[in-house]
Simulated assay, not measured.
Amino acid sequence: MFVDSVDSDIAPSGTLLGLLQRGRGDGTLHALAAPRVEALSALRQCMLNDPRRDWQVENRSLYYARLHTELDAGLDQIEAHLFHPDDLLPADRPEERTGLALSVLGHLASYGDHEALLLLRRYAATGANWQWALDELAVRDEDAGLRTLGPAVMARFPLTAEGDAELAEAARNAFEPRPWRLWAEDPARPDQAKRLHRMQERGSFDRWQRQLSTPGPRPGWSVREVLAWAAEGSVNTLGEAPTAHREAAAARCLAAVAGPDDRGQLLAAASGGP
């Protein structure tokens, strides 16, 4: 989430809320020393109204999950936030509203909070930001629990050409492939497994086609061309999130094409880049 530096929702740094919003280490100490009602209010404000400028570069979920455990905060407020009617409204980036709360639930589930695990399962089955919840479950839930989610997730994609294309894209873009593999190998649901196997075959063919006609870096590209290609994905004229994130791919390309003579150009890009 991007917060305006002039007119923002960030509280002054000397307040308990301001400390927690900034992820300050002493914020936890102040929260534990403050009246419990005040500490819970500040913590919930942070978890349910993501204060980070960019959730992709600031990790705050473990910080809040630990404090949540120390305060024995309960899950009622998180549940109400996740299943609020706003969750059903169309949104370009639903992760901004629910991503932090889902990540906190993931850590709580890792700590053995079974209610947090059940809440993640429920949201993965019915919530708008279901892919985030599924990724949290993929590294924490048991195989049996993940298998039960297969029908609900598959039902999101109609049995049409468009639905199959969306299903293939969702499976391809998943951070954690484990649930999809379990669903494709589930003997209790042969129709589901057959559909996913068909999508995997189609995905392999599409990947082969993309490799033949990729607009990205090709053999023979120079360091300058790779840097220009990476910069195209971070062009941001309206103060919004970048349309593409090519840094990792560009770094791999640079490792292959850069030589000692390119050192000055790389240093200049590193010092002046976004």
Rank of each mutant, 00 (worst) to 15 (best):
S213D: 14
S234V: 07
G127Y: 12
N236D: 08
T98W: 04
L167W: 04
F205W: 12
A184Q: 10
E142D: 13
R218T: 13
L19W: 05
L67W: 11
Y64F: 15
G27Q: 04
Q45M: 07
A39C: 03
A91R: 04
A42S: 12
G127M: 11
W180H: 02
H84M: 03
A165K: 05
W183D: 10
R140W: 02
P85L: 09
F175M: 11
R97I: 01
V153N: 01
G25M: 11
H68I: 10
R156V: 05
A171L: 15
W132V: 08
D191Q: 14
L146G: 03
A231V: 01
V3M: 04
H81A: 14
L100N: 00
T214N: 12
P12V: 09
A101T: 07
A174I: 07
R24I: 01
A165G: 12
R147E: 05
E247N: 08
L48R: 15
R210G: 09
P190N: 08
G106W: 00
V223A: 04
W208T: 13
A228L: 13
P90S: 06
E185C: 10
T69E: 13
L134Q: 06
T148Y: 00
N59G: 05
N49W: 12
R97M: 04
P35G: 11
A250K: 04
I10R: 15
A165W: 04
T214C: 10
L196G: 11
A228Q: 15
R207V: 12
N49Q: 12
G25N: 12
D76M: 03
R195H: 10
P260D: 15
R156W: 03
T98E: 05
A73V: 10
A138P: 01
A244L: 12
D206T: 14
R189C: 07
G127V: 11
F83T: 03
A42H: 04
L16G: 08
P217V: 12
L43R: 02
L19F: 06
Q21C: 09
P242Q: 04
S8L: 05
G264Q: 03
P187F: 13
L182N: 05
R210K: 13
E70L: 14
V223Y: 01
T148A: 14
A258W: 04
A144Y: 02
D87W: 01
K194N: 10
A161F: 02
A124T: 03
L108K: 00
L149G: 06
S103A: 15
D206E: 15
T148G: 05
L212R: 15
M47F: 03
A34L: 14
L43E: 03
R97E: 00
H197D: 12
M47P: 00
L267V: 01
G150K: 00
A244S: 10
A258P: 05
D50R: 09
S213N: 14
D26N: 13
R121F: 08
V153H: 01
L62M: 13
A124G: 01
M199D: 04
A155L: 13
L88Q: 15
A42G: 06
Y63H: 14
D7F: 15
A101H: 00
